[in-house]
């Protein structure tokens, strides 16, 4: 028989909260002082009706005062009470439906009931890489331009600049690679018999790959991983660890022709002791299907399709929204 748990007494260190409050008061104090200084300054410096300009900095005074008041007030509350105030403001807590699991966009499938969506679309990847390429290479390009057209640009400066140019070239190469994938590889379609999946269940998954492609290898893996985020000083770190995986498809030499997509139905057995999906700001348990394609004479690709695992009772008690596929 399990031992009856005992009440444990502990004293929470107050230093961290005090420091956070001090920093917040200092931050909003700067708003307050700057707003007041500009407002008073405008009153003395501006002539006649232009003195009305003194009203504008009062916004900063209000932000400063409000921020200081809120910081001091929250410092008087325990973290639990702050959370409680949050859920009471939003009405009664929706304990049974507001669950700490990922919010995913799923669609009604064509062959099986649920179609999964990719975590980031291919076009989204291209947009991000394009933005980074333009930003980085735009800045580096200014210095390269100065170097090319300036007579007194030292070779030492070129040496300093070269790692930045190299990084720019790598980002550009990644952009080109992603564009090549978008041009030739349509999204893999993943449909399932059910989503979320319950531990201990077996689900059918239909994998559809369209296009005009010659695969050396096409692999689909189901993965469960823990993901965490932590801060040390001003830096933020991410870490993940695969805790379970299963290969659901591993096909060599797959030929896909236009108008005749590759279709394969596979089974996924979720272990009975599997942990459910979990989503909080710094801690996550993620379930996903990872599609890895190795193409002949073309860049390899990897598409990720998250799905959820929850106990069967949870799946039955919560309504799961499915969007319709556009015709």
């Amino acid at each position: 028989m399990a031992e009856t748990p005992k009440t444990v007494r502990e004293v929470e260190p107050a230093a961290a909260r005090g420091c956070a409050t001090g920093c917040a008061v200092l931050f909003f104090g700067v708003f307050l002082v700057m707003g007041a200084a500009f407002s008073i300054g405008a009153l003395f410096v501006m002539p006649g009706a232009a003195k009305l300009a003194a009203l504008f900095p009062l916004i900063f005074v209000a932000i400063g005062l409000g921020g200081i008041w809120a910081s001091l007030r929250t410092n008087m509350l325990s973290p639990e009470k702050m959370q409680a105030i949050g859920f009471r403001r939003g009405g009664a807590p929706q304990l049974q439906t507001n669950l700490p699991i990922p919010k995913l966009r799923t669609y009604m499938g064509r062959d099986l009931p649920v179609r999964l969506s990719m975590d980031t679309s291919q076009k989204g990847h291209v947009a991000v890489l394009l933005a980074v390429t333009l930003f980085w290479n735009g800045i580096v390009g200014v210095f390269v331009g100065i170097g090319l057209f300036s007579s007194d640009f030292d070779s030492i400066l070129w040496l300093i600049l070269s790692p930045f140019i190299l990084v720019g070239l790598v980002i550009f190469a990644l952009l080109v690679r992603q564009v090549l994938i978008v041009l030739r590889v349509p999204d893999t379609l993943i449909e399932m018999t059910d989503e979320p999946v319950a531990p201990g269940e077996s689900v059918r998954i239909m994998i559809t790959q369209a296009g005009n492609l010659n695969f050396d290898n096409l692999k689909v893996e189901a993965v469960c991983e823990e993901k965490i985020t932590y801060r040390r000083g001003t830096d933020t770190y991410h870490e993940d660890r695969k805790i379970w995986s299963a290969t659901v498809l591993n096909s060599d030499r797959v030929e896909v022709l236009s108008g005749r997509p590759f279709k394969q139905t596979v089974e996924l057995d979720v272990p009975a002791d599997a942990m459910h999906s979990f989503h909080a700001s710094n801690n996550e348990i993620v379930w996903k299907l990872v599609v890895k394609g190795v193409l002949s004479r073309w860049p390899d690709f990897e598409f990720i399709y998250p799905f959820r695992v929850v106990p069967i009772e949870v799946r039955e008690r919560v309504s799961w929204k499915r969007e319709s596929l556009s015709p």
């Binding site: 444990v8 007494r9 004293v11 531990p199 106990p311 009772e313």
Partner: peptide
């Protein structure tokens, strides 16, 4: 000052342990 009593939350009966 905090007094705490831990407990374990399991999946409902009929569902496997997590």
């Amino acid at each position: 000052v905090r007094f705490q009593l831990p407990f374990v939350m399991r999946a409902p009966a009929g569902t496997a342990s997590e």
